[in-house]
């Protein structure tokens, strides 16, 4: 009887612990697809987890550096999904009619609405993203612990969707640690239907 109770308790503990864990899988250094259209070729191994409209990749842990790969935002989509419904209501929504300047404002406002502060954008430039006319800008902000972070956004609108990559990391060490790998990876982005890639 006692053994049975202990076994049940152990099972409950395992369930409890598992519920609090994020599920990550390994991304090998080879071309992979994210969603139905975007593909990318990492040159090192990453850990990834999926959220509704993106994949989040990291090497050292999301608190230290994270790469958000969006599968293609559509009208009404938000960049981040917050658990607090009141704050989520204030989260800006993507619109296919947004200009380049509005796209930056959309990304900036999403970062601020997520609770980050002291946001400053830098070096906003037109650039190619998967052979499309796209944009890129860098930013700095303080995270919820007051730690300075650096990041950049690169993307392009294709069809009615916004394809976007956000990379951010702690200013001290972790942002720069894989920056070159991320830059190389972004140059490898292709937008094509998955069937054409496979």
């Amino acid at each position: 009887m006692t053994a049975q109770i202990l076994a049940r308790l152990a099972f409950l503990c395992v369930c409890f612990l598992a519920a609090g864990c994020q599920t990550y899988s390994l991304v090998q250094p080879a071309r992979v697809t994210v969603g139905d259209k975007l593909s990318i070729e990492p040159d090192i191994a990453w850990n990834k987890r999926s959220i509704e409209n993106a994949e989040i990749w990291t090497v050292d842990g999301e608190a230290l550096q994270a790469l958000h790969l969006y599968k293609g935002l559509e009208d009404g989509d938000t960049l981040f999904v917050l658990t607090n419904s009141e704050k989520q209501e204030k989260m800006p929504q993507y619109s296919k009619t947004m200009s380049l300047l509005e796209l930056r404002e959309f990304i900036e406002a999403s970062i601020v609405q997520s609770g980050f502060t002291n946001l400053k954008s830098l070096k906003f430039k037109p650039t190619k993203f998967a052979d499309k006319d796209g944009f890129r800008f860098e930013f700095t902000f303080s995270n919820t612990n007051g730690l300075r972070e650096l990041g950049f956004a690169a993307g392009a609108q294709s069809g009615d969707r916004l394809y976007l990559v956000l990379y951010r990391g702690a200013k001290l060490h972790y942002y720069g640690k894989y920056l070159k790998n991320v830059e190389d990876m972004i140059r490898s982005v292709q937008l094509a239907w998955a069937s054409a890639i496979l």
Partner: peptide, 10 residues
């Protein structure tokens, strides 16, 4: 300004 390139592009 940090966005002069994009403004010229626009």
């Amino acid at each position: 300004a940090e966005d002069v390139d994009i403004i010229r592009h626009i």
